[in-house]
Design a protein around this nucleic acid. Structure first.
Length: 283
DNA sequence: ACTATATCCTGTATGC
DNA sequence: TGCATACAGGATATAG
């Protein structure tokens, strides 16, 4: 599942190949992929054709490519979205949803997405920051992030700490994997009320999230299967470094107790029962 | 305003 | 073997 490190790997892959190239052809193979485009496929094609791409930017899990002029192509990978750069003659991947061809001999850009939770759209005047992302908070690597203000916002929430970490309007880029890993590193239970954590504790959680995502990025991201790969189709290697996420029944790398899996908000949460005991104050 | 949940989607794994 | 069910979980609309 692409979270900040995986999306950043993709951004870097696109950055190496796309800037300065001009879109010649746009094929929308599944309308759902452009569901956030006002005017649908026709407006998406019209908005991209003939445009020259700039350097890709990212906020949290969102990517965007400035277009010549002031607009931008915005992308979210969702659960299973991939950008692939392949020569036009190469066999198309199953679940290819959108293809951009260019006016040169370089590779075409394919958006492949099995589950279609991802999407693409053209944001008018979105080159600087797309208006549709106004509600997405800065991520932990954003130089404009105000860490003290973030700590205060987190502590102002009446919800469990993991729910708050996953709220992209508070801090962006963290998903289920890195939330569990950060909480394991900081030895915090996912249901600890955010408002009950001391500021220093919240800072520790954020620093743990920053660290684990930084390490994951250095290893090319976390891949469990072919659903997350870079623009060349290669997997990242961080899954072998996970301490908690997906490790139910395996020994906690710190204390040896068995990691447990628990239902959490229609999904799963993994923790060490000894390092991350349930807090006395229940939410 | 804030919080929680249902929903979208498809391939894979598991159970009977 | 075949069928049904659970599961993976991003963002968002909607309900409370």
């Amino acid at each position: 599942m692409p979270e900040l490190p995986e999306v950043e790997v993709v951004r870097r892959g696109l950055d190496a190949v796309l800037p300065g190239r001009t879109v010649a052809t746009v094929s929308v193979l599944h309308p759902r992929t452009v569901r956030r485009q006002p005017g649908g496929s026709a407006d998406f094609v019209a908005g991209l054709s003939g445009r020259c791409l700039g350097r890709p930017a990212r906020r949290g899990k969102f990517l965007w490519l400035p277009l010549d002029g002031e607009d931008a192509l915005v992308a979210h990978l969702g659960m299973s979205g991939q950008f692939r750069l392949d020569q036009a003659a190469a066999e198309p991947q199953r679940h290819t949803r959108v293809v951009l061809g260019f006016d040169d001999d370089g590779p075409e850009l394919r958006f492949v997405d099995q589950r279609i939770f991802g999407g693409l759209w053209v944001s008018p005047q979105g080159a600087e920051t797309p208006a549709e992302l106004a509600h997405i908070a800065p991520d932990l690597f954003d130089p404009t992030l105000d860490n003290d203000q973030l700590v205060a916002r987190i502590r102002a929430r009446h919800s469990g700490i993991k729910r708050v970490l996953l709220d992209q309007g508070i801090v962006s880029g963290i998903g289920n994997i890195y939330a569990d890993e950060a909480l394991w590193r900081a030895r915090v239970h996912y249901d600890s009320p955010a408002s009950s954590l001391r500021p220093a504790r919240v800072r520790e959680v954020l620093e743990a999230a920053r660290q684990v995502m930084g390490e994951a990025l250095a290893q090319g991201g976390t891949s469990f299967d072919a659903l997350y790969v870079n623009v060349n189709g290669a997997s990242g290697y961080f899954s072998r470094s996970l301490a908690a996420y997906g490790q139910a029944g395996r020994a906690c790398p710190r204390c040896g107790r068995s990691i447990v899996r628990e239902a959490f908000a229609n999904r799963s949460s993994f923790r060490c029962p000894r390092c991350q005991p349930r807090p006395r104050v229940r939410p």
